[in-house]
Design a protein around this nucleic acid. Structure first.
Lengths: 94, 94
DNA sequence: TTTTGACTTGTCAGTTCGAGTCAAATATAA
DNA sequence: TTATATTTGACTCGAACTGACAAGTCAAAA
């Protein structure tokens, strides 16, 4: 399960919303949302922002998790991946 | 220019090899190698390993840079990206 | 100034990959 | 059981990517 997925489900349940309602708002299939919450699909950044409005949470919080998931999906469980992420972070913090 | 691209060009020049020769070894176009060195194309992991042999360098060094480039290509210049990378790294270092 | 050889760049066909859908399966509740 | 919510598998379609070709630039040599 992904970082973002976990968070999204948590929020949705707290707000007592059904997949059906969220899907209607995002104009997509309930299956899509289900898969996103399980980390089997990525939403686009625009959709994340839309969801943040609907859920009344900071878009930045969700987007940060979204980036984290993207990164994790690249490196997988390869130990070299971790080294690569560190190197990338160095490049960013210059 | 990508991290890996820079390194590959550096190595190739140090070894006084022509794009033509590297391309022949990898059985691809010189344009391909040129673009890789400029960060406009990604090589597959298998090709990186092959190149490491040819260049007589540690494959791990190149693969680490390859991962770093992948990560950087995702986060781009979005400041939230950096936060996401940090979060991903946390997840990995747990 | 032409030629040659190394590299670069634009374009595009072919392919890959993943978002999104549909339908069927499974849970959960009443 | 019936109804509703969620999950899962199989599939499609389009966007993005790889890799090839050809034409381009550039520098040095003739």
């Amino acid at each position: 399960m992904s970082q973002l997925g976990k968070k999204l489900r948590e929020i949705r349940e707290r707000k007592k919303l059904l997949l059906r309602q969220v899907a209607a708002y995002l104009e997509c299939d309930t299956a899509m949302i289900s898969k996103v919450e399980h980390g089997e699909r990525f939403l686009g950044k625009e959709q994340i922002e839309k969801l943040a409005k609907y859920y009344e949470v900071e878009a930045d919080t969700l987007l940060t998790l979204w980036y984290a998931d993207k990164v994790l999906s690249i490196v997988g469980d390869d130990p070299l991946g971790k080294k690569g992420v560190k190197k990338a972070l160095n490049e960013l913090t210059d």
